[in-house]
Structure formats: structure tokens, C-alpha cells
């Protein structure tokens, strides 16, 4: 099959662009290790406390290094469980210093949820039986909204918490 000369030019240009995109993505993914969240560990959705990370006392923000934090969250219809404060009240705001390395770990106790800190790359699916994790550095100070962006039922749009990234 003969192809018009200009069409060849176009195909080389078009397919070349696609290959360029893929190479950039592959370097990010395989060389720098920045895959989309794809954690492989499973968990019993009815017994999430069996997992060390999701024991009641380990929920919420924990400092694990000089500038390193872990945030363990239970996602349920229709709230994020970020643990309790000293007064025994449910935490709904976490504060992270700018530039800190943060590992978010979450799982669902019921249905499928989303986990998106709006305006950041912290965006992952949460599914019952699976643990979702994402490590990131919060680069810009500000008040962010952590919200559920995957339909989870009638109260889906109320499922949210606040993430403050502050200048230390």
C-alpha cells in the first residue's frame, strides 16, 4: 500500500511525538520510580485493625524522621478517619511542614473511595481489601482539601478533611 509523502511526514511527526511522550513517562516511571499508586498489599476489609498501620492509635499524622511523616487514614462512607486528638475528638485537620516527605497510607472499610488532596498529585483510588499508598513531598504551603473523588454513596460529597501545609 502506497502512502502519500505528506502523510508519511505526518505519521513520522505524530508517532514520533507519541514515542517522545512514552519515553518521558518511562524515564519517570522506571528510572525515577514515579509510577502511579499501585500498592500490592491486601487486607481484610472487615478487620483492618489487624494491620499495624490501621490500628486505632496509629491513625492520623505521625512523625517518623527528621523531616518525614506517615499519614494513616481509614476511608469509610462518608469520612476519613484521621485518629483522635488529646481530647478524644475526631481529627479533621492535619498539618504538615512544607518540604516534608510524607507517606500516605489508606484502605477502605466498606466501598470504593477516592483519596485526592485537591491541587496536588496525591490522587489515588481506595478499594476494600487493598492498601493504597503514595509518597510525596508537599511543595507549596497552603490549605488543601482532602476529598473523596470516587462515588461512594449518598454522602459522597461530604467526605473531606483539611490538609495544611505550613512554613515551619
Amino acid at each position: 500500500m502506497r502512502i502519500h509523502k505528506y502523510e508519511k511526514i505526518w505519521l513520522i511527526f505524530g508517532v514520533g511525538s507519541l514515542i517522545l511522550f512514552l519515553i518521558i513517562l518511562a524515564i519517570g516511571a522506571f528510572y525515577k520510580g514515579v509510577h502511579p499508586p499501585s500498592h500490592m498489599d491486601t487486607i481484610d476489609p472487615k478487620n483492618v485493625q489487624e494491620n499495624e498501620s490501621f490500628k486505632e492509635e496509629n491513625l492520623g499524622l505521625r512523625q517518623v524522621g527528621e523531616n518525614e511523616y506517615i499519614v494513616n487514614v481509614l476511608s469509610s462512607g462518608f469520612y476519613y478517619d484521621l485518629g483522635k486528638d488529646e481530647d478524644g475528638e475526631a481529627v479533621n485537620t492535619i498539618r504538615i511542614p512544607v518540604g516534608a516527605k510524607v507517606l500516605f497510607q489508606t484502605t477502605s472499610t466498606d466501598v470504593v473511595h477516592g483519596f485526592h488532596i485537591a491541587g496536588t498529585n496525591v490522587n489515588m483510588m481506595v478499594e476494600p481489601g487493598h492498601i493504597s499508598t503514595l509518597e510525596t513531598v508537599m511543595q507549596k504551603p497552603g490549605t488543601y482539601t482532602l476529598l473523596c473523588n470516587e462515588y461512594c454513596g449518598s454522602g459522597h460529597h461530604y467526605m473531606a478533611a483539611t490538609v495544611e501545609v505550613y512554613e515551619p
Binding site: 485537591a118 491541587g119 482539601t145 459522597h156 460529597h157 483539611t162
Partner: peptide, 19 residues
């Protein structure tokens, strides 16, 4: 691109300026 979710009814979430 600013982060607004799909498949959601009207909500001001936690009332952050962002929303």
C-alpha cells in the same frame, strides 16, 4: 486542573478557599 472532583453533588467541603 484546580482539583474539583467529578461525580459529586454541590459541596463546599471543609470550606477552604480553594473550594
Amino acid at each position: 486542573l484546580l482539583g474539583a472532583p467529578r461525580r459529586s453533588a454541590y459541596s463546599t467541603y471543609t470550606g477552604a478557599e480553594q473550594v
